[in-house]
Every structure is written in structure tokens, then in C-alpha cells.
Amino acid sequence: MSKGPESRVFSAPCAVFIPPGTAHGFHFAPNSEGIVATVLADRLSLPLATDRALSAFFSQTRIVPVDGVDAGEGKHIDHLFRRILAESMEGSVGRDLMLDAHVTEVLVWLARAGARATLPDDGGVPTRDSGRLQMLETLIAAHFREHRSVGFYAEKVGVSVAQLNRIARQEAGASVTQLLARRLVDAARRDLIFTPTPVQAIAYSLGFQDPAYFNRFFRRQTGTTPGAYRETERRRLVS
């Protein structure tokens, strides 16, 4: 039995995020003002794939009040939306790249504001395991290019390899090895799309001694080669 449509009430100032593919409609009060930004789903894929917290936050419709955030932060969010509007109306060089950058920044600011607005009554004090996951993610960010073993990270966090994998699967839904692979792929994607660096040089910069192995690794993780991925994504940027 299908559910009927859900109605949600919101008031300004706020930002509303609606995930791709979600049927929706609005009924605005007279004299309402605002900006509607429609972003193609493939333009959201890279920033949401890059950060687990962003992906989780924007997996559903979100209404983020802006009046409760820091005044400077609220003005910055408003400024970003206006920059998106201005860029979309201009034909300047690099417009699509600038729009992607502004959209990514908007997503990050809204997720941060939304997370603070929905903290639990206990103040959102992290559990021991969530704290260990944050430590792991910090370590991965610092060392992922070095291709360290899982044991290296377990020792730094102060737990066994089995414990660290349990924490990673419980808190992040992936093993430590999978988290490391994701970080390498995310870095590779950014370099492939936004830099002219040759694939071979990208491989070396990510700690791969053999560019051919990097190609196999990337294809195993994404289903395509680095060269084909770069070509496809750059065509999307200029379309």
C-alpha cells in the first residue's frame, strides 16, 4: 500500500535540500523571496562520494534553518547562493568549474549547520568508537599516500586490527582497507578532473610505484580506467 504525500512546513530564513529523483512541490506564502538552484545529479556525485558525512546527511530531504547559525556563517551561505545565481547567468570562462566549487561549499556549510541544529540533548558527545573512527579518518588523511598496513593504523589508534575493522564497519559501514581505497580513489578523481597532470604522475603522487597497477586498482574500484574517467567527466563539465 503506497503512502500519501508528506507535507512539511518551513519558514525563512532556511535552505531546503531535495535529493535527486524526489517528487516534490511547493506552496509559498505571498511575497516570499528566495533562490531555487537545480543541480544535475551527476554534479553532486563527486562531493557526496568524497565525504561519508555529507553523503549520509543529504541522502534525504533536509530543511536547514539559517537563523540559528552564526550571523557571519548565515551571511556566507546566502552569499554562496547568490554567487551560484550570478555564475549561472554569466558566460565567463570556467563557469562550470566555479559552479561546482560553489555547490560543494554550500553542501558543506549546510551539512555543518544542519548537524548542529540536530544535535541530541546530551550535547552530541561522541562515543568511544566514534572518537576512534574520527582518529582513524584523521590518520588516513595524513598517511593514505604511504600505503600503510591496517596494523599501522590500529597501533596508532590503540586497538587491535580486528577491533579497528569492527569499529570501521560499525561506524562507517566499511573495512579499514575499503576506507583507504576510497580515499585514494577520491584523490585520484579530483586530480583527474581538475588538473592536467598525466595519469602516470597522478599514480606516483598517490604512492603507487607502478602506474599499471594504479590503472588496475582504479578500474577495480570504479569500473573504468583513469583515462576514460577523466574524458567522461570533463565532457560533462563542458556540456
Rank of each mutant, 00 (worst) to 15 (best):
W109G: 04
V64M: 02
D100W: 03
V64D: 02
R43I: 00
L107N: 12
A86I: 08
R43L: 04
A41P: 00
G131W: 03
L99Q: 07
T197H: 04
I193Q: 05
E155D: 15
A188S: 05
G4D: 11
L136F: 06
P13R: 09
V64P: 00
S11C: 08
R169A: 15
V93T: 09
T61Y: 01
D121C: 07
G131T: 12
T61N: 01
A115T: 12
F57D: 01
P211Y: 03
M98N: 13
L133G: 02
R189F: 04
R189P: 03
L136D: 02
S88D: 15
Q209K: 10
L107V: 09
P211G: 03
S205N: 03
E73S: 03
L80N: 11
V9H: 14
H24V: 09
V106Y: 04
D78T: 12
M135T: 15
R190I: 08
L80P: 00
A141D: 15
F208H: 01
M135W: 06
Q221T: 01
N31S: 13
S149W: 00
S11W: 05
V103D: 05
L48R: 02
F17M: 06
F10T: 11
S88T: 11
S7R: 13
A212W: 02
G223P: 02
I202D: 04
Q209T: 10
L139I: 04
F152Q: 01
S7M: 14
L206D: 00
H143D: 12
